[in-house]
């Protein structure tokens, strides 16, 4: 197990857990970024707090809605800390897939670069602070496309 687990009392009160989840994504701005970002990491895009700014920082162009993107998300997240998200597309020449969560204070959640030969299909798990749209951005043939779906995030009671 990760050593940090020891710092948490095992009996977790619901309210504290809920507060923690909200706090998780509650305020923008890092505590301190002394070192440079990992090579290739789009630092500016990850700082943005709006959909438009994040898209602009990532791609410098705007996206057109497309029905050739399949975005799979749960209607109601079983837990906002772990929301399964998958994106695939039937568009040709897909070079990048990004996932935005405007309901999170930092909008951009993940961005994937797909070299030629990599299939346009990605699955991952994201944190969501509250009910929000999830936006899938697909860059294909030099153009940008998007689709979105809403995911409801409710506070847990007991965890089943």
């Amino acid at each position: 197990m990760h050593p940090r687990a020891d710092h948490h009392p095992p009996a977790i009160h619901t309210r504290r857990a809920a507060t923690r989840l909200l706090a998780l994504l509650g305020v923008a701005g890092f505590v301190g970024t002394a070192r440079a970002a990992a090579p290739g990491w789009p630092e500016e895009a990850f700082k943005q707090t709006s959909e438009a700014d994040a898209i602009k920082a990532l791609y410098g162009k705007s996206a057109a809605t497309s029905d050739k993107i399949t975005l799979e998300v749960p209607e109601i997240a079983e837990n906002g800390a772990v929301v399964p998200v998958s994106v695939s597309s039937s568009l040709a020449d897909v070079t990048a897939i990004s996932i935005l969560v405007p309901g999170n204070p930092l909008t951009l959640a993940a961005s994937y670069t797909l070299p030629a030969g990599t299939l346009p299909s990605i699955g991952c798990r994201l944190k969501m602070a509250k009910t929000s749209n999830v936006i899938a951005l697909v860059e294909a043939g030099g153009k940008l496309y998007s689709t979105s779906k809403e995911v409801k995030v409710t506070l847990g009671g007991c965890g089943g």
């Binding site: 079983e78 837990n79 995030v153 409710t154 506070l155 007991c158 089943g160």
Partner: peptide, 8 residues
């Protein structure tokens, strides 16, 4: 449902 959770 108990709030967001389904009771087992």
């Amino acid at each position: 449902r108990m709030r967001g959770d389904i009771l087992a």
